[in-house]
């Protein structure tokens, strides 16, 4: 039976975050986080493999107590075991520290065949943790996988590569980052949702990883990067020329402006 690992991240839906003029975000009108939408595609890949070939799926998330709700959600969606990495020592981790901590966790779990990661997170937007985990573990990775053509002894995958699609063959163990186009994640059934409430979430602290890791590489201490400041992108410089009406005359007024401002110059009929 294949052993699959899916790291997932808790995020807050962007529509619930209000940013003030200094770029400080406040979370409003929500009871908690949700699974990063891109990670749902990764989980769906794992669940489809489980349905077809049989597999165990361990989901891992790093975060505070609230994160156990997203892990239970992952169980409702088909994961078999859930692990929460919770410790003040993990706070302020950048992508290097995060990937190191998750890689150490995966080592501690023992053998695995496949790690599936989402393309990126909607809050950090980095998409870097996946391949970093692969490097820490010394295994190959294939990024931007948009299709799994074959899975058995070998894997045949389609990877999106800067305007080309590469069909590649590889074997286990391997880490994949999958695109949002690879599948449409299923919704959990009501029964699975109810059952998942009772599911056990294993909680690991930094001490639990001591055998696999150098604890100085966790959290703030293990993070070379830090955010110095946050600003709102300036909307300044927008011309804000508005016209009212759908008739040809109004459209002419608009195109006159576009012509005058040299916008039309950039158009080329193909």
């Amino acid at each position: 039976m294949l052993k699959i690992i899916v790291p997932i991240k808790q995020v807050v839906d962007l529509s619930h975050i209000k940013f003030d003029d200094d770029g400080v975000g406040t979370i409003e009108n929500t009871t908690g986080g949700e699974i990063n939408p891109f990670d749902l595609n990764a989980l769906e890949v794992a669940v489809q493999i489980k349905d077809k070939l049989g597999a165990t799926i361990n989901v891992i998330s790093m975060g505070e107590q609230g994160a156990d709700s997203i892990l239970k959600d992952a169980i409702a969606r088909g994961a078999t075991e859930a692990f929460l990495l919770e410790d003040s020592a993990f706070k302020d981790s950048d992508t290097l520290a995060t990937s190191y901590t998750i890689a150490s966790t995966i080592r501690k779990m023992g053998d695995f065949d496949l790690i599936v990661c989402g393309e990126k997170s909607v809050d950090g937007d980095t998409g870097q943790v996946g391949p970093e985990i692969a490097e820490h573990l010394g295994i190959p990775h294939v990024a931007y996988v948009s299709k799994i053509e074959e899975i058995g002894e070998k894997l045949v995958l389609v990877s999106d590569m800067d305007g080309e699609q590469h069909t590649v063959e590889c074997s286990f163990p391997i880490l994949l980052t999958v695109t949002k186009n690879i599948n449409t994640p299923r919704l959990p059934s009501l029964r699975d949702k109810l059952n998942s409430r009772k599911a056990k979430v294993e909680i690991w602290h930094s001490d639990d990883l001591i055998s696999e890791a150098n604890i100085n590489r966790f959290g703030n201490a293990g993070s070379p990067t830090f955010v110095d400041k946050i600003t709102l992108p300036s909307e300044g410089g927008r011309k804000g020329k508005t016209f009212k009406g759908s008739d040809l005359e109004t459209v002419k007024e608009l195109t006159n402006e576009l012509e005058k401002d040299e916008i039309l110059k950039g158009f080329s009929t193909k």
Binding site: T126, Q128, H141
Partner: peptide, 21 residues
């Protein structure tokens, strides 16, 4: 795609900080 696949491997191998995108 290439840079975002390669840079994290370099960062993890060099234990260096990476800012993406």
């Amino acid at each position: 795609h290439l840079g975002r696949s390669l840079a994290p491997r370099l960062a993890a191998a060099l234990q260096a900080g990476l800012s993406a995108d």
